[in-house]
């Protein structure tokens, strides 16, 4: 007898058919298992959903803040105070000159008398102003930067360019609050990334632990299956599907929680935006966000169960 002959395997199409049938059975079996243990399945799904919901809410909140910030930067106007020597008659033509710059969208001239009238109307120093013989206010041009020149550096360049003109005494831009806002958003973004990684790890561990218990409960079945010729892939398959369903199901519940949360918030947010004279609506997850969340959930479930099953499968051998 020659001892080196390889084991014959079934023909390719039969193997493919067997492969497809095995996948379908594992899929149905793993779904059935979730269905047969509704309480523990629901608990696990909720834990995974919570872990996925938190970073998702952070992410959605950040997206909304970013959507708002162009709106706020529209108020980024530069007040250009002119020298005493500039007369009221010169102000409009100077404003027209500034308006022609590529980085300026609009330049609104405010003459001394207009400034005084406005100050009277809003400051409440009406009486005090009457005492003064001269108008103490300088002429001002309010410059609105062009849309594509509202980044911090572009604004700073515009301010220094304006200040270099001989007619200009001072150009003022209150950038600080915007810089702070961007810094806060940057920080929140990083926090979201860290939070996502930690909670993603949490999902891996939850799925891994669930699958580990499942493997242990089915130890005898795995031994018998190996004895009658089950491949590792065959044994692994229902557990992998189990992990996939947990991740996908958890993500679906997370989508629902996020959607409901945003619905609850949309009313107050709308009121708030109206109070600020804005008209922005709360942005939801969107189709892309929903698909991403579902994909991430499914992937985490699959990876979590893959790691666990591979770790424990080798320990279980027929004796």
């Amino acid at each position: 007898m020659s001892g080196q002959r390889r084991l014959e395997q079934p023909p390719v199409n039969a193997r493919f058919r067997a492969y497809a049938i095995n996948h379908l059975r594992a899929l149905i079996f793993s779904l059935g298992k979730l269905h047969r243990a509704p309480f523990s399945s629901t608990l696990t799904l909720l834990v995974i959903a919570t872990a996925l919901t938190l970073p998702t809410l952070f992410h959605v909140a950040l997206g909304n803040l970013k959507q708002l910030s162009p709106d706020w930067s529209r108020t980024a106007q530069i007040s250009v105070f002119l020298e005493e020597t500039v007369t009221d008659e010169q102000v409009p033509s100077l404003a027209a000159q500034l308006a022609q710059r590529a980085d300026v969208a609009e330049a609104l001239p405010i003459t001394r008398s207009e400034a005084l009238a406005e100050f009277r109307a809003h400051s409440g120093f009406d009486g005090a102003l009457d005492i003064l013989e001269d108008n103490p206010l300088p002429p001002v041009i309010v410059v609105t930067p062009a849309l594509d020149h509202r980044a911090t550096t572009a604004l700073e360049m515009l301010v220094s360019a304006l200040e270099q003109r001989p007619e200009v005494a001072l150009a003022l831009l209150d950038l600080q609050w915007m810089q702070r806002l961007f810094a806060i958003m940057d920080m929140l973004q990083r926090a979201t990334v860290v939070l996502s990684l930690l909670l993603g790890l949490g999902v891996l561990l939850v799925v891994g632990n669930t699958i580990r218990l499942d493997v242990q409960n089915r130890r005898e079945e795995i031994e018998v299956a190996k004895l009658v010729g089950a491949t590792d892939a065959f044994i692994r398959r229902p557990f992998l599907y189990g992990g996939l369903w947990l991740g996908l199901g958890g993500a679906a519940v997370a989508v629902a929680i996020v959607t409901v949360t945003l619905l609850l918030l949309s009313g107050p947010v709308h009121t708030l935006s109206r109070l600020y004279g804005g008209e922005w609506a709360l942005q939801g997850l969107g189709l892309q966000g929903t698909l991403t969340l579902l994909g991430v959930g499914a992937l985490l479930g699959l990876v979590g169960s893959w790691i666990t099953v591979n770790q424990h499968l080798q320990d279980i051998e027929p004796r």
């Binding site: 084991l7 190996k226 004895l227 009658v228 010729g229 089950a230 491949t231 590792d232 065959f234």
Partner: peptide, 13 residues
Amino acid sequence: AVLSARQVPYFRR
């Protein structure tokens, strides 16, 4: 002796 762990299931069948 020449059967790898991967071939064992097919052998047991």
